[in-house]
Design a binder for these strands. Structure first.
Length: 417
RNA sequence: GUGGGUAUAGCUCAGCUGGUUAGAGCGCCAGGUUGUGGCCCUGGAGGCCGAGAGUUCGAAUCUCUCUACUCACCCCA
């Protein structure tokens, strides 16, 4: 037996309807917000991710599935969804389409990490990418898309956390302030944070070490160092959220793990699904398109983990809808081919018809109908076949009604309507 | 990469301090007379008790090593 790889998961037939439910709602929401789907390859030049995601991030640094293909190219499985979209936006001159260009994707992403609850080596993300608009409204719309999807899936109680991490200009000033603050207490920081101090002091704010957290508590806040433009933007976002009546918390400790973010960052966090509780994370990345080699273009978006979405829905008891069941089961007594052919002709009329293909006894076929959740059952034996009349049994009530064989399709259709 | 936990049937688990052919419930398949599901009853299939080594007359049970899975840290969705 060859087993499945660590950190990967099968979606089994008993549970695939959960995914379909989510995909169905994604389709509905993306239509409401006029988002167009974009699909990019599962693998790209490694260089794209080095430049896009950032070569100092853990994600590309130690978590990428990177290998050489037979042509000697270094390629990597996508560790996140944005870089490929940016590449495609530039490569296909999508800036020529009416802006802002509103896109979404659904894709597997791959990261070589130790799996745990809510964390896999291959997981799936629904993501939104909106290019060309730099307004606070555009940020808020992106948040609304996520929020609307949550609502349609019956998920309530998620907390929206927002922050602004500024632009390169104000970040410079803030980094300097952070460095001087932490430098005074450098001996009390953990080993990794001492390293962070020089390279990326922002990260110290996120450290889970008790001591570091304590020190970070009184660290200067990014929000106090925003430049005029960034400050106004952040205020604009908050004002719009308030007008919409959407509750949120400003958490100036949010530092997303991808280097490309500027200004707004946000996440939707769930309780009770384990330590990995961020269901959706996103923000603005105004420098990314240029970074990859295109003309400067503001952009904002998010990534949402489908597996974590399912986890959340399961723990709060949200409904995934009904598992699909057959409309009609055609049980036969010694007439398997007749039943088989009839089932097929009914399907042509849009009826989900099922029949036995294992040579089961009538009783066994009845049990099967029950287990499959068939709404109606018809028994076809010699006499019915000869007379052209059958009894249609409604499984739920057990009641039977006569119906001519020729009219079964209409009978079932009427019942469904 | 660093810690902790767990490994017995498809699933959830019993199996006391080592003692014959390893168990239950659920699920699956078949039956409970002549052509009707849910409840009930009967039977069947299905386990190298995670792998290897050791202790012992004898190991699912004790010891060691490995592996897998899992939770948590780091980081992230």
């Amino acid at each position: 037996m060859i087993n499945i790889l660590k950190g990967t998961k099968d979606v089994l037939p008993q549970e695939s309807y959960k995914w379909q439910k989510i995909e169905h709602e994604i389709e509905a929401v993306t239509r409401l917000y006029n988002l167009h789907r974009i699909s990019t390859p599962t693998f790209e030049h490694t260089e794209l991710f080095l430049r896009g995601v950032g070569d100092t991030t853990d994600i590309v640094n130690k978590e990428m599935y990177t290998f050489e293909d037979r042509g000697g190219r270094s390629i990597s499985l996508k560790p996140e969804g944005t870089a490929g979209v940016v590449r495609s936006y530039i490569e296909n001159s999508l800036s020529q389409l009416p802006q802002p260009l509103k896109m979404y994707y659904e894709t597997p992403v791959f990261r070589y990490e130790r799996p745990q609850a809510g964390r896999l080596r291959e997981h799936h993300q629904f993501g939104v990418e909106i290019y060309g608009a730099d307004s606070p409204a555009q940020d808020v719309e992106v948040m609304l898309i996520a929020k609307t999807l949550f609502e349609r899936l019956g998920i309530s109680g998620l907390e929206l956390r927002i922050n602004s991490i500024g632009c390169p200009t104000c970040r410079k000033a803030y980094n300097a302030a952070l460095k001087s603050y932490f430098a005074s207490r450098v001996d009390e920081l953990c080993a990794t944070c001492r390293e962070r101090l020089d390279k990326n002091p922002l990260r110290i704010l996120d450290c889970k070490e008790e001591k570091c957290g304590e020190i970070a508590k009184n660290a200067p806040s990014v929000l106090d160092y925003l430049c005029e433009d960034c400050r106004a933007h952040h205020e604009g976002v908050k004002a719009l959220l308030t007008k919409l009546g959407i509750s949120y918390v400003v958490d100036d400790k949010i530092v997303r793990g991808l280097d490309y973010y500027t200004k707004t960052v946000f996440e939707f966090v769930a309780g009770g699904i384990g330590a990995k509780s961020t269901v959706c994370g996103g923000g603005r990345y105004n420098g990314l398109v240029e970074q990859i080699g295109g003309k400067p273009c503001p952009a904002v978006g998010f990534g949402m983990g489908i597996e974590r979405l399912i986890l959340t829905m399961t723990t709060i008891g949200a409904s995934f809808g009904e598992e699909p069941t057959p409309d009609l089961f055609l049980a036969n007594i010694g007439l398997p081919d007749e039943a088989f052919l009839l089932a097929e002709s009914l399907r042509k009329e849009g009826i989900a018809a099922e029949c036995d293909t294992m040579g089961r006894s009538l009783k066994s076929q009845m049990k099967l109908s029950d287990k499959l959740g068939a709404k109606y059952v018809v028994v076809i034996g010699e006499s019915e076949w000869a007379a052209g009349v059958v009894k249609v049994k409604e499984m739920k009530s057990g009641e039977e009604e006569e119906c001519s064989l020729a009219n079964i399709a209409n009978y079932i259709k009427e019942k469904k309507a």
